[in-house]
């Protein structure tokens, strides 16, 4: 977007080594022209990449830095990357609100939702993939139909149901409706179908019951799918906003997303409590970042699983 000058030189510096490697490797190609044009091409590529990378990383840096700024510093020097003075005032003020409570709520809700989803989705996915019973195909069709219902139009219906069941404003309302999801069942079903059935058949002949076969033979083989599902569930529930808006209006039952969205909508336009908001956003981002860095491989698999179903 801007500040092309410094990026230019950085891109050129980064490109210096690969260019020489490339000319050596490209000698089978048809001449010097290709080598020359591809080295300028590389410079262009690196410049673009570095520019985009800055565009993608910059907001997170601002978030981090502003969390340690004072209110005036944040308003007057939005681009300064060193807080002056460095203060943990914003974090302290956050700790005085219900923020710690919301954080705790987000943690236990995400944990329970994840455990529930992993267990119930794989149970159902296994039955739909392997066990033969009347009505199985109809059930699977119903799941595909359910998957095509957009989550956002369910907010009001789910609120009506929670009220009707007497669950509204209870801890259960935050977790129970989320412990099983059609998309997760679908992912597990697809995965179980890819495991050769011979192993379980052997176990069945040895006289193991259906649940034991599932639990101690099939599930251990499904480890990659289970990890993907665990991550998708944890991240999904940690980031969920809509459901927590309609599940409760008691501050003590807010999750991080719900609580922080509430105090963000306080002011429009310029200059309101940005260090506190950035600190809140930062605390919310850190767990996701940790999980993401450790399990990156599985995130990408999950994203492509989502693509397949479309």
């Amino acid at each position: 977007m801007s500040g092309v000058g410094p990026q230019d030189s950085r891109g050129a510096a980064a490109v210096a080594t690969p260019t020489t490697v490339e000319t050596a490797a490209k000698r089978t190609d048809d001449g010097t022209l290709v080598g020359r044009s591809s080295s300028t091409k590389k410079v262009v590529f690196y410049v673009l990449l570095v520019m985009f990378a800055l565009m993608y990383i910059f907001p997170f840096i601002i978030q981090l830095v502003t969390s340690f700024k004072t209110q005036t510093d944040a308003n007057n020097n939005p681009l300064n990357l060193i807080p002056n003075p460095v203060t943990n005032e914003a974090i302290n003020r956050l700790l005085d609100t219900k923020f710690p409570r919301w954080f705790f709520n987000s943690v236990w809700v995400a944990l329970l939702v994840t455990v529930g989803r992993v267990f119930f989705n794989s149970l159902a996915g296994y039955a739909l993939a392997r066990l033969k019973f009347r009505g199985r195909n109809a059930l699977f069709t119903a799941i595909l139909a359910v998957m095509s219902v957009p989550g956002i139009v369910l907010l009001l219906p789910k609120f009506l149901a929670l009220k009707y069941y007497g669950l509204y404003n209870t801890p259960g309302a935050l977790v129970i409706p989320l412990v099983c999801d059609a998309a997760g069942v679908f992912i597990m079903k697809q995965f179980f179908e890819s495991i050769p059935p011979s192993v379980e058949e052997a176990a069945r002949i040895d006289g193991a019951g259906t649940f034991r076969t599932f639990w101690s033979i099939v599930l251990p083989m499904a480890k990659p799918a289970l990890i993907t599902l665990t991550i998708l569930s944890f991240q999904g529930s940690w980031n969920e906003l809509g459901h927590f808006i309609i599940a409760s209006n008691k501050e003590d039952l807010y999750t991080l997303t719900r609580g922080i969205a509430g105090f963000a909508s306080g002011g429009l336009g310029s200059g309101t409590q940005f260090p506190i908001k950035m600190a809140a956003a930062l605390v919310m981002t850190i767990p996701t970042a940790i999980v993401f860095v450790i399990f990156q491989r599985f995130f990408t698999q999950g994203a492509n699983a989502g693509a397949d179903k479309g």
Partner: peptide, 16 residues
């Protein structure tokens, strides 16, 4: 993969 709430807060500040 980051919460839409967190990102929205950051952009509220960027575009303030």
């Amino acid at each position: 993969v980051v919460s839409s709430v967190a990102i929205s807060l950051v952009f509220l500040y960027l575009f303030a």
